[in-house]
Simulated scan of single mutants.
Amino acid sequence: MAVLDAFHTPSLFDRLTAPLKRFQRNVRRRHGPLDAALADFLGDAVRPGDKVLQIGANDRAALTFLDRGVFHFLIAQAANAEAVESLCQAEGISADRLRVFTSVAASESAGKVDAVYLAPTPGFAALAAHFRHAAQRLKTGGLLLLDGADTVEGGKLYDALHADLGWRLDELISGKVAVFRKTAALAAA
Rank of each mutant, 00 (worst) to 15 (best):
H162C: 04
L12Y: 12
D114G: 09
F131S: 02
D159V: 04
F131K: 02
M1F: 08
D50L: 10
T102C: 03
V152D: 09
S86H: 10
K139I: 08
D147G: 00
Q24S: 10
A6D: 11
F13S: 14
F13C: 06
V84H: 06
N26Q: 14
A106E: 15
A105P: 01
A160L: 08
A126M: 09
D170G: 09
G155Y: 05
H8L: 14
T121N: 06
G92N: 02
R30P: 01
Q136L: 05
G69S: 07
A163L: 03
H31A: 05
K139R: 13
L145D: 00
A18S: 11
A57L: 14
P19H: 08
R168P: 01
L63Q: 07
A187G: 09
P122C: 05
G43E: 10
A184Y: 00
D59F: 08
R99Q: 14
F124K: 03
R68S: 05
D40P: 04
A188M: 07
G92P: 07
R47W: 12
P122Q: 11
N80V: 15
T9R: 13
R68C: 09
A106L: 10
A128S: 07
P10Q: 09
P48R: 12
L16Y: 08
R47Q: 15
G142T: 00
Q77L: 12
D164G: 00
H31C: 08
H8V: 14
E153P: 02
T17W: 12
V116Y: 02
L12K: 14
P33K: 15
D150H: 05
F131M: 02
S107C: 11
V100I: 10
L118I: 08
